[in-house]
Amino acid sequence: MAKIPLHFILNGEERAEFVDSGATLLRLLRDKTGDLTAKSGCLQGTCGTCTVLVDGAPRLSCITLAEDCDGADVETVAGLAAHGQLHPLQHAVMEHFAAQCGFCTPGMLMAAKALFLTNPRPSREDVVEALSGNICRCTGYEPIIQAVLSAAQVMSASGPGAA
């Protein structure tokens, strides 16, 4: 199987890796970079737990081809916390008990971050829509929705650029 060299940005750092031709972004992240935050769930593009940002847009890494991400800017949950401080989204998830088993949480966080990039002051309806591609079997969604709304308030109060 041919090995393909890829250059990309992962959470702000330049990376160069070899991948098997035809591999997914999820395999690149988990097998090559050691970033295990994007979870391997349904592998069908249905559950959303593998959600990452590619050039600022939410993408399901299980059905995104690694070779399409050559030169791209990839963000995962591993890049959310900065300087030893949790991101407001992470803090809100903790405060609102929005994670139980935690398997969906990385995808939920990245879907929420994608929402904030285009809509820093979302309504409840906006949040529900933003999370509509992410499945949680534990929480019943309500604590997650509340956490995202709460994080939006905190970040809006912190001023522009907080996302």
Binding site: G45, A57, P58, R59, A114, S132
Partner: peptide, 9 residues
């Protein structure tokens, strides 16, 4: 058509 991540693709 799906959630936002599906619609990006």
């Amino acid at each position: 058509v799906g959630g936002p991540a599906i619609r990006s693709a």
